[in-house]
Amino acid sequence: MGNSPKHIAVYTKIVADKLLERGYDEETIFRGTAFDASLLQEEAPMVEAADNLGFFEHAADLTKNDLIGFQLSQGQDNRRIGLISYVGLASPNVLEFLLNYGRYVRVVSDVFDGDLSRLKDQGLLSWRYRIPSNIERRQYVEYSVTVLLNTLRHYTGTKLVPRQVGFEHQRKDHVEVLEEFYGCKIMFGAECNSFEFKKADLELPLISADEQLLKVLRGYGDQVLAEKKGQHDGLIPEVEQAIADQLAAGGASLDAVASELGMSPRTLSRKLANRDTTFFRVLEDLRKSLSKSYLRDSDLALAEIAFLLGFSGLSSFNDAFKRWTGQSPGQFRAV
């Protein structure tokens, strides 16, 4: 799958090193993953995004610790990921760091989809990952976002506290641990991942600012982006997002999703068929993935989950979930 979207695996390498330090052997660390010990020798590996994010979930399963991503990020800054970190750190202040970081993140990721349009006026940075919904990402998100905040705090010399943080994933345990570190309310199950900063904090200067270096790095970054433009396809995640936006309003239809994506239902069906899937299959996979996340990681009532997934009632949700898993929603949650 040479055209599969890639994502930098430097953080994955760091986590593997940390597991070695904790006494796990290489065979155990990499068993069941897409990686082997050669990862430890690479400087800036780029790997399939699903494999990258999946390794963090593997680490949580291996250590039986659902805070492992957050915990292993402590004391880390993001210089190890190279260009996008240094172009950010050469910026004059927090605002320009985030703008440059958001602009050049595609150098190291084909799946990061950021929205910078409200950053300057509202202090809001939001992003999603253009990957199928069944790819777990909680540990990676909590790791990478904590590293980003660590970096901003270190290079501003402040205890920078966001107004609010939002995570797409659900979490019902240890919320207070994360909120204590971030210093603010965290919204789990949010529409997208987000940071909201005070305007005064966006103006905080960076001790690493370097105007001449910034010009050089931006020039190089623009070259790399031009070469990468249009290389990777994110249709299925786009379809999933369009479906998710419509589910709680009473379900999602092929016609409505195709219209939102600016194409005819026939064209969308043909494009999905070229990717060996159908609209109904994408809808079912998304509902299945979201239902498991809601049941495992939230305290939402079953009727609320059925509503959020666009089912007409609890019984139809029960029937669908049994078809997917062989269990009722209640049995799945009780395990």
Rank of each mutant, 00 (worst) to 15 (best):
R80T: 04
I236Y: 08
Y101T: 01
H58A: 02
K292R: 13
V257Q: 11
A303R: 14
D210F: 09
F307N: 10
F321T: 00
L83H: 10
L283G: 01
S289P: 08
A44F: 07
K199Y: 06
M1V: 11
K199V: 06
N52P: 01
D285K: 15
V108H: 02
V177I: 14
L20D: 04
A90P: 11
I186N: 08
D115H: 05
F35Q: 06
A256E: 15
A226R: 11
R130T: 08
R22E: 12
A90M: 03
L53R: 08
K13N: 03
G88H: 11
L247N: 07
L254N: 01
G54L: 10
A244Q: 12
F70S: 02
W324R: 01
A248G: 02
Y104V: 02
Q164V: 08
Q164N: 11
L295D: 00
Q231C: 07
A37T: 06
A44P: 00
D17P: 00
L217I: 03
L268F: 07
I186W: 07
V175G: 00
D222Y: 07
P132W: 06
Q170F: 11
P5V: 13
E260W: 09
V108T: 09
A301I: 04
D51E: 11
F317E: 01
F97K: 07
E43K: 11
L83Q: 05
R163H: 04
G102N: 07
H169G: 09
R103N: 07
R333T: 00
E43D: 11
G69S: 02
R333C: 00
Y24H: 09
I135C: 13
I8R: 01
V161Q: 15
D36I: 05
L119R: 04
L217G: 07
F181M: 03
N193V: 11
A50M: 06
Q41D: 06
T12Y: 01
S253P: 05
V224C: 02
D61T: 13
I81R: 02
L217T: 04
D201C: 14
H169R: 14
F307P: 00
N93R: 15
R171T: 09
M263W: 06
R171N: 09
T33P: 10
F30W: 11
G250H: 05
R270P: 03
I8P: 00
F55K: 10
D110C: 00
V94W: 10
L204K: 15
A306N: 02
E176L: 01
L40H: 02
D201N: 15
D17M: 09
P237N: 07
I131E: 13
S208C: 05
L254V: 09
T33W: 12
V257H: 12
S144F: 04
R275E: 12
H232Y: 14
W324L: 04
R130V: 04
S144D: 07
N3H: 14
G183L: 14
G23S: 13
S4R: 13
S144V: 08
E180Y: 02
N78R: 06
K18H: 03
D110Y: 04
E42Q: 14
I207S: 14
A60R: 08
D36S: 14
V282G: 00
